[in-house]
Design a protein around this nucleic acid. Sequence first.
DNA 1: GCACAACTGGATACAGCATATCCGCTTCAT
DNA 2: ATGAAGCGGATATGCTGTATCCAGTTGTGC
Lengths: 212, 212
Amino acid sequence: MGRRTQAEEPAAAAVRPLRRDAELNRHRILRAGREVFAARGLQATLNDVAHHAGLGVGTVYRKFPDKQALAEAVFTEELDEIAALAREAQSEDDGFAALAAFLESALGRAAHNRGLRELMRHGAVEGTGLTRARREITSHCEALVARARSQGTLRDGVDEADIAPIAAMIDAVLALPGEHPSELWRRYLVIILDGLRAQPGQTPLPDPDSAN
Amino acid sequence: MGRRTQAEEPAAAAVRPLRRDAELNRHRILRAGREVFAARGLQATLNDVAHHAGLGVGTVYRKFPDKQALAEAVFTEELDEIAALAREAQSEDDGFAALAAFLESALGRAAHNRGLRELMRHGAVEGTGLTRARREITSHCEALVARARSQGTLRDGVDEADIAPIAAMIDAVLALPGEHPSELWRRYLVIILDGLRAQPGQTPLPDPDSAN
DNA sequence: GCACAACTGGATACAGCATATCCGCTTCAT
DNA sequence: ATGAAGCGGATATGCTGTATCCAGTTGTGC
């Protein structure tokens, strides 16, 4: 495969600017994708998206070859927004509070976004943009955990790797039957955070990979 | 011909005793159902079960009209076993310890049983036997929570209705990608239990149905 | 205002999958 | 021995999501 700079295209496709209406439709699709994936989850059909956008299926398939492609575009945006929440949370002085604030805000997003939760769960949709955003979030998490630990407010043995399972647990509450959006998850986040706080005379945490 | 295992049916279809081989196959199917549902979850096919039992599909469909029926039979047994675990846990003197012991043992079961977890999650398969067993478990939970509360070791505001979400949360850890069976869930159960224990100066728990 | 390329819509072909049936053959019980 | 009970598993059926195709429409440059 020959490496080709950009502008000139002998065989490859030139990046011709979209016609104005086509560009508009692209936005419509993206927005519809956000809404539909948020409401119905990743298993929503591109047909669903098209209908929601008020467009034909063909139009959607023209812009995004398959669901994967659309999902990648949509969720890259959303993950970036969550990374921004993490950045904001850093401004909190108390390390534990910062971590708590991040979890609250990020999970607050997830609460209204079923697709995002499914993405968190299965890590499906391995797009380039996604892994980048994901990595960014991970590094913020590391920083938050490290700071809380250095301030001694985090329970001994708690680790950056605990964040994902915690998110998964809250996700499970969100996924519980019952009409949405419910705020029940906050209750359990409080419980978990209290279990995460350093306390005198705490039981040591079981090793992540103990073979009991 | 005097052999009559159970009461004779007057009006309805007489429950003719199964031929010996048929009875044996019935057991095989039940056992295969347990194993297959545990390993592959509720979405396993009756064809899967049949194959696992070393029988033809037709045989399975003869004994159980559909997946629902088999699942009901299988999981009624399993839920009864969990009810038994709850009963055992009651023997623990300390109320909080009893509750903790129940959660540990019951979730230990779930850890190796994907079908059971899916059942817990969606409450699907509404069979008569199931709702009975479920009710039994619920009432044990109520007793366990009540006792812990009366001994003052349970955090203020914690309630029998919290058990299901807690189970759901641990379930989420169990469902996390990674090779199974993992014992990671124990780590988070410890965290949650510590958040559930009464502690001086604890934040009050958010109301289950606060509309924040 | 024309002509043509770009774009659109949505009916529909396609593929994969779980469910459940059917019926010729085998095995049990008497 | 014989007929009823039971068995096997290929296969019909129906459903769902994916993606294509092309006749018709619309935007754009001349």
